[in-house]
Amino acid sequence: MMIWYLVLTESIVTSQGKIIIEIGKEVINGDIANYLNKPYHYLFYKYSSTIGSTIANFSLTLLITGLVATLLVGPITINPLNIPLILISCLLGITLHFSMMATLGIFTLWIEDSRSLDFLYQKLIFVAGGMLAPLDIFPTWFANITLILPFSYAVYAPAMLFVNFNIERFVETILIQIFWIIITSSIALILFKFLLRRVSINGG
């Protein structure tokens, strides 16, 4: 089960690319000004323009790592009726992952360095998000802390549904994922408003 857990966590985390660095570069270079006179919101544009390739990357990674996992440890036993529900949770996890990265990307306006934020975020996702290992193997105090943070709902929660589906856990997971998406997106949108003021003040 551990191998299949890692299949899904890797698929989710590696599907999105370097959103923090991408957004950070556009913020620092001022290229973001090109998007301000368009009839769409920059962050929603960023999400919709990257979600296609994200889903493609996710599917490809899942397929290839799934084949390798099958060869190594045999196929996973999964009820086909649960697959759409698991995919919904994966999509919400990917959205939450994007939302957190977008927030940090905008934060580069103040930090002025997106690579640093990207490095730190990656490590938080690896450890507190459960990408490297299921949070259950860690000490209880640490697992409890991660369960009140959003990182585990981007990666660990969907992966646990994948290896051990349970309808109650599914409902709980998607509700908490939606909650964290709302919170992190709101923070991103608020920060973006501050960003707009800075762009205007600098004569954009």
Partner: peptide, 10 residues
């Protein structure tokens, strides 16, 4: 300094 601290924390 920021990058050094970040890498150290990393």
């Amino acid at each position: 300094i920021l990058q050094t601290i970040t890498m150290f924390l990393n």
